[in-house]
Amino acid sequence: MQNYDTILVPIDIYSDYELVVNKAVAIAGDSRKLHLLYVAYPQTNVEPYGLFLERDFSEEVRVQALRLLKDVAAKHDIPHNQVNVEIGSPADEIHHMADKLSADLIILGTHGQSGLRLLLGSTANAVLHGVKTDVLAVKI
């Protein structure tokens, strides 16, 4: 098996992620090789016209997600400076972070439910398109 030095692990901290992180730690052999990423959808995806929201809650979402992600990192001995929260399209942000880190591998979870998405899930499927590195999809 190829030796992976920089592994990006995008997770949904509000869903089942333990299996994905545990698999990543096992593959890495050293948790210092892992970089955690959580991507929150922009507020405009939730409230596209801003009719009912008085202000943008993106920063609060980022702060809360970062706190939760740092808890995951601490539990698995992943350095806190290797934890990132981004706001945007999950697939785009995963591609961007993988490029920024020069990641050797992306390990992500998939729920894959129906049709073409049965195999991978919509985010995992989107990540595969245009990715420049190996991807391991962990069935949750």
Rank of each mutant, 00 (worst) to 15 (best):
M1R: 02
Q2S: 09
Q2F: 10
D5N: 15
D5K: 10
T6H: 01
V9F: 11
V9I: 11
V9M: 09
V9P: 11
I11A: 07
I11K: 09
Y17L: 07
L19D: 04
N22S: 08
N22Q: 14
K23D: 01
K23P: 00
V25Y: 00
V25S: 07
A26T: 08
D30I: 00
D30K: 00
R32E: 10
L34G: 01
L34W: 02
H35N: 05
L36E: 04
L37R: 12
L37Q: 13
L37S: 14
L37P: 14
Y38S: 13
Y38E: 13
Y38H: 15
Y38R: 08
V39D: 07
A40Q: 09
A40M: 06
A40S: 15
Y41E: 12
Y41L: 13
Q43D: 04
T44Q: 12
N45M: 15
N45G: 09
N45K: 13
V46Y: 11
P48N: 14
Y49Q: 12
Y49F: 15
G50Q: 10
G50Y: 12
G50S: 10
G50A: 13
L51R: 14
L53N: 09
R55V: 01
R55T: 11
D56M: 01
D56R: 06
D56T: 02
S58A: 03
V61F: 01
R62A: 04
V63A: 13
Q64C: 09
Q64T: 15
R67Y: 06
R67G: 07
L68T: 10
L68H: 11
L68G: 10
L68E: 14
L69I: 11
K70L: 05
D71M: 05
V72I: 12
A73Q: 01
K75P: 07
K75D: 08
H76E: 01
H76Y: 13
H76C: 01
H76N: 09
D77P: 00
D77M: 05
I78M: 05
I78N: 07
I78H: 05
V83E: 10
N84L: 10
N84T: 14
V85S: 02
E86V: 07
I87Y: 00
S89I: 14
A91L: 04
A91E: 15
D92H: 12
E93W: 08
E93P: 08
I94W: 03
I94D: 09
H96P: 04
H96K: 15
A98D: 03
A98W: 03
K100D: 12
K100A: 15
K100G: 06
L101R: 11
S102T: 12
A103V: 08
L105I: 05
L105Y: 06
I106Y: 03
I107K: 01
I107R: 00
L108A: 06
G109C: 06
G109Q: 05
G109A: 06
T110K: 08
G112Q: 03
Q113N: 14
S114I: 09
G115Y: 00
L116W: 04
R117C: 00
R117N: 14
L118V: 06
L118R: 15
L118Y: 11
G121W: 08
G121F: 10
T123S: 11
T123N: 13
T123E: 12
A124V: 07
N125M: 13
N125G: 13
A126S: 15
A126R: 10
V127D: 02
L128H: 02
H129N: 08
G130A: 03
V131A: 11
V131P: 04
K132F: 13
T133G: 07
V135P: 13
L136F: 05
A137P: 01
V138P: 04
K139T: 00
I140A: 12
I140T: 14
